[in-house]
Amino acid sequence: MTIWEMLAVFAAGIGAGTINTIVGSGTLITFPVLLATGLPPVTATVSNALGLIPGSISGAIGYRAELTGQRRRIVRLCVAAAIGGLGGAILLLLLPPTAFETIVPVLVGLALVLVILQPRISKAVQRRREREGTEDGDPAGGPLLFAGLLLASVYGGYFTAAQGIIYLSLMGMLLHDTLQRLNAAKNILAAVVNTVAALFFLFAAHFDWTAVLLIAIGSTIGGQIGAKVGRRLPPAVLRGVIIVVGTLAIVQLVTRH
């Protein structure tokens, strides 16, 4: 890489770390930059997954106050994230690069619809729980959320772009909690998926150490920036940011070829 390419990758890492912590979809910033430096698509995907691990951890640390009381829930959901992340990483090396190109924009679009409808869905679910005398429901979301996050994590291990939006839509629909606390849990789940996939890639795929280190440093910085910004956003504004970023993600995913 030239010095200018290195600076571009580093800046992309900061941007990805920031947006991943607030919403998700940071890969849509780093991935095109890595391709522009000449890296093959699979090598770029693997290098990106490795580099974003510190950013995910940094963002999770920044949201540590919102993680209070969620340990049991997160431990259970992390099992789904780990299994799915490993499955997605294996699929990345087995399937052709274009395998998910059609379904990914559809998944992200469906997730955005769920995010938009989440307040109404949550109220309907709460009314049903009150009628049935199960006001709190399953604090971990039950089998449906576990299965949904497992499938979302397969996608996350495969490509990662917009996986955070999918996580937030599923948890927002099936868990009775604030969007900020769900966002904190999302950062933990993303860190697990990236870490599991990256450990697999270390032994089974090619990657570029320069790109990994630049994104790692940048995303760590971005994770702290994202946590400071994201934690101050009111629920309605945060939901609006998710919708805007998700829409831009769909446009880029559809048009990037």
Rank of each mutant, 00 (worst) to 15 (best):
K186Y: 09
A184I: 04
T178S: 15
D177P: 11
Q126Y: 11
D136L: 11
W209K: 04
Y158H: 06
L182M: 15
L179R: 09
I188H: 02
D177A: 15
L170A: 13
T220A: 14
A211T: 10
V212W: 06
R120G: 11
G226A: 09
H206G: 11
T160R: 02
L179V: 15
Y155F: 14
I225G: 09
A185C: 12
F200A: 06
V192Y: 03
S169W: 06
I166G: 04
E132V: 08
G156S: 12
T210Y: 10
A185H: 00
T210F: 12
L151F: 14
V196Q: 08
G226M: 06
F159G: 02
I121D: 06
G172M: 10
K123V: 11
F200W: 15
L182R: 11
A124T: 10
R231S: 13
V192P: 03
S219Q: 03
G156C: 08
V196L: 05
T178W: 05
A190P: 02
K186M: 06
L189S: 08
P139T: 01
I121V: 14
A162C: 10
A205K: 11
L112Y: 11
Q118L: 01
I221N: 00
L175W: 06
K123Y: 07
A197P: 07
T220K: 00
L189C: 07
L114W: 09
G157F: 06
L168F: 05
T134S: 07
L145T: 07
R127L: 14
T178G: 11
A191F: 07
G148L: 08
W209H: 03
Y155D: 00
A190T: 12
N183S: 10
A161G: 09
S122I: 01
G156I: 04
A161K: 03
G230M: 04
Y167T: 02
E130R: 15
G172Y: 10
F201N: 09
F200S: 04
S153I: 01
R131P: 03
L112A: 12
V193W: 04
L202R: 04
L170V: 03
L182Y: 04
Q126M: 12
E132Q: 14
A211S: 15
A216G: 13
A147M: 13
R131D: 01
Y167S: 02
A152E: 04
G222I: 03
G226F: 08
F203D: 04
G230V: 04
F200M: 07
A190V: 15
G157I: 07
Y155T: 08
V154N: 01
A197Q: 03
D177G: 14
G226Y: 04
E130I: 13
L150K: 00
I121N: 02
L202H: 07
G222A: 00
V229G: 05
L179K: 09
R181A: 09
L179E: 00
D208T: 05
H206A: 15
A211M: 06
R232L: 09
K186F: 09
L175P: 05
M173V: 15
V154F: 02
I221H: 07
G226E: 05
G133M: 08
R131F: 09
M171K: 09
G133N: 00
W209T: 13
Y167V: 01
G218A: 08
A198Q: 07
L175G: 02
M171A: 12
V125Q: 12
L189I: 14
A205T: 14
A184H: 02
D138G: 02
A227Q: 05
L182P: 02
V154G: 00
